[in-house]
Design a protein around this nucleic acid. Sequence first.
RNA 1: GCUCCCAUCGUCUAGCGGUUAGGACGCCGCCCUCUCAAGGCGGAAACAGGGGUUCAAAUCCCCUUGGGAGCGCCA
Length: 477
Amino acid sequence: MSEPTPKTRFAPSPTGALHLGNLRTALFNALLARGHGGRFVLRIEDTDRERCSPEAAQALMGNLRWLGLDWDEGPEAGGPAPPYHQHERGAIYDAYCARLEAEGHAYPCFCTEQELEMARRAQRAAGQPPRYPGTCARLSAEEVARKRAEGREPALRFRVPPGEEVRFHDRVHGEQRFRTDDLGDFIIRRADGTAAYLFSNAVDDALMGITDVLRGDDHLTNTPRQLLVLAALGLPAPRYGHMGLILGDDGAPLSKRNGSRSVDELEAAGYLPEAILNYLARIGHAYATEAPLGLEGLAEGFDTARLSPSPSRFDPDHLRHWQDEAVQAATAERLRLWLAMDALVPPGYVEELINAVRGNIRFPADGREWAKRVFGPPPALDADAEAAIEAAGAAFFETAAAAAEEGYNRFQGLRGALQERTGRKGKRLLMPLRAALTGRCSGPELQPMVDLMGGERVTARLRRAVEVAAEERAQEG
RNA sequence: GCUCCCAUCGUCUAGCGGUUAGGACGCCGCCCUCUCAAGGCGGAAACAGGGGUUCAAAUCCCCUUGGGAGCGCCA
């Protein structure tokens, strides 16, 4: 018997921006499918109209596409099990709910929020687990009819069979056993008629043919409930794998407080998709290589047996490392689009500039900064640069400017002429030059930058350096 | 409170009964070098604690401790 090709899904609730934890879940599910020639489904879990918005769903899809995590089935892609927005699947849920109710697996519950809240508080106070007390579990048909006649809209609650044990094999944690007595009856349809997560999520996985579900550990204790629902409905259950959660750098759940940023924020900050992907793929999952991988490589090396059950911490330094790797590995063309600095660079020079500065940049702003220093007006001098210029003295720059004006304005020529005329070499020669030309004492190799600048700019900057050095002399004197 | 999950350098991790406990990030040093990066080389840095099982335990079992999750008409 061969393994069926996997079908995985990402089933986000569009309640806000896509964050790293959820994104990793999406990534692993996508990798599992892609690595085995399977299919990846996107399903929007928007049954809670209060909290969900179409804008958030749209943004989320944009994020996934930006990262290259396109889905094979789902919104805007179609597929054999539409619709892929849960808010459009009400009729399906109604039918399954009706069946559960007819077969006694579910019952209407008229308890109000306040009643439930009070019951929970009382249970906690008494040292009891806060579980549904079963108030409406044994309502007679007459009582139900009467309450309905009073105009009260009930929620639908799943009747958890007592005294049983639910077992399943988790791909990450191994064998799991839960006693149904620890569960408590749970809501599968709200009083407003919309389906609740536990129910719609499980039913849709079955209906959409999902074979494998990778999700966070926070769902581990939900699993027996979903298994119970599927069993009552005679629907197949997927294979589950629960991964350790990503925590903040303080060990608390990931949130804005401890450094988590949304995909939107990371994109705005200049992170490349490859950086985010490589970083996330290595949290809770180990690859054989530390080299940066593309989506295909990540999928190829992905193995659920290498998923970690333990929680891990988000580390901004590590993300930055993958950003550096991504920048170094990217083609010049890729960086050109990312840097968006065409307006700052004369046509035809972009690639050369990129290759000159790529080792010194991490974000687009860094690249644009160098573009301006090379091709813009003489750049502002920072304190170190000014000091270096003053230390070299006006005479040095006078000589340099003269040489440039004579035509020694390419790097090698200028360097040779200056060495000959001033007797300076090495650092004593090049540091003042660097300061005068780029405004800073650190940065990419001088040679390509100087040659990219061209004679006019070089001369102008050297002339300015003469003035700066002379002014200083005058002030001191 | 109850149920469940987790535990190797500061962080991400390899390890699945016998290893000098390996790698990566970060940190430190050296090399390269006009500087800063990049790159190369090297260094400091870990099996939470206690009991078992075994000839042998980071690895298997139990307890403690410490983290995390669930117990919602949120997902």
